[in-house]
């Protein structure tokens, strides 16, 4: 069973919504990673998406791209992130999801990556430049290590693709809320609710919304029609400014008392 899926289902069973913050590993130095994860756990997040910096992050908007550049300037690599996580693995209480472009995994070695990542507390992987059609390059190794391979479903995915992606996704389904790259936005298309309902029809795997979610109101409104949210750019910005009050408000918005 997927620990990731279980963690999300346990959250929603309480009536809460899953809250998954995205952090850029190495932004501010890898030595910050342990305290950041520990504080996020204390705030009651469901899982943590750990971004791995890459030289050519084509799916990322300016906020995450800049965080990635800062992390690269600090010498952050996939190998160093995994080593750092492994150093405090016993203190990691929530499932970690690595978000990395494919090439660093290929350079690491697919099998070795799966083993090391698993030992470091990574329970899911999101690879934004690897669509379902190409998954065989890594999926067997991830299965062996019990790491969920999460699929993104976009607004442009045809109904036939939505069905295939949804059924293939492990851990959760990452439903992209906008056409485009990551980053905060103020408006979303109206047809989103229907889109999410269609996705959820195909599966009992939880659906989380991501891309552009940046306020407690967004957290609540998306939470109303899916199992939870992923918040990236806003968290990355807040961490860079050491603004934990904003992060706390976002997490709180996912809790039962505040969801209407």
């Amino acid at each position: 069973m997927s620990q990731l899926k279980d963690a999300i289902l346990a959250t929603t069973a309480n009536g809460d919504k899953a809250f998954v913050p995205y952090i850029m590993a190495g932004d501010g130095g890898l030595e910050k990673l342990q305290s950041t994860i520990s504080k996020l756990q204390e705030l009651g997040v469901t899982a943590i998406e750990v971004g791995i910096p890459f030289t050519d992050p084509v799916a990322d908007g300016p906020t995450i791209e800049r965080a990635g550049e800062r992390a690269l300037a600090n010498g952050t690599t996939l190998r160093k992130v995994i080593e750092t996580l492994a150093g405090f693995a016993s203190e990691i209480k929530v499932p970690l999801v690595a978000m990395t472009y494919l090439n660093p995994i290929l350079a690491y070695g697919v099998e070795q990556f799966a083993q090391d990542a698993s030992a470091a507390g990574i329970r899911g992987v999101i690879i934004p430049d690897m669509p379902l059609e190409e998954k065989d390059i890594i999926h067997p190794a991830l299965q062996e290590a019990n790491i969920a391979l999460i699929q993104l479903v976009s607004l442009t995915s045809t109904p036939e693709r939505v069905e295939r992606l949804t059924k293939a996704s492990e851990g959760f389904i990452y439903a992209v809320t906008v056409n485009g790259i990551t980053g905060a936005r103020s408006s979303f298309a109206n047809e989103l609710e229907e889109h999410f309902a269609k996705i959820q029809d195909y599966t009992d795997t939880p659906v989380l919304a991501g891309f552009g979610i940046s306020s407690p109101d967004h957290v609540k409104s998306f939470g109303a029609f899916c199992s939870g949210v992923i918040v990236g750019s806003k968290i990355v910005d807040s961490l860079a400014n050491d603004d934990w009050a904003t992060i706390e408000e976002l997490v709180l918005a996912s809790k039962v008392a505040t969801v209407r």
């Binding site: 084509v58 799916a59 494919l102 934004p128 430049d129 690897m130 669509p131 379902l132 059609e133 190409e134 998954k135 065989d136 699929q151 993104l152 479903v153 976009s154 607004l155 442009t156 995915s157 045809t158 693709r161 992606l165 992209v176 056409n179 485009g180």
Partner: peptide, 21 residues
């Protein structure tokens, strides 16, 4: 899964899902 657009083992479609359609 179908692997399209290969030249030997090279090529493929390694892009974000938003571009697949």
């Amino acid at each position: 899964t179908t692997v399209k657009g290969r030249f030997g083992r090279f090529g493929g479609q390694f892009v974000p899902e938003t571009l697949m359609t």
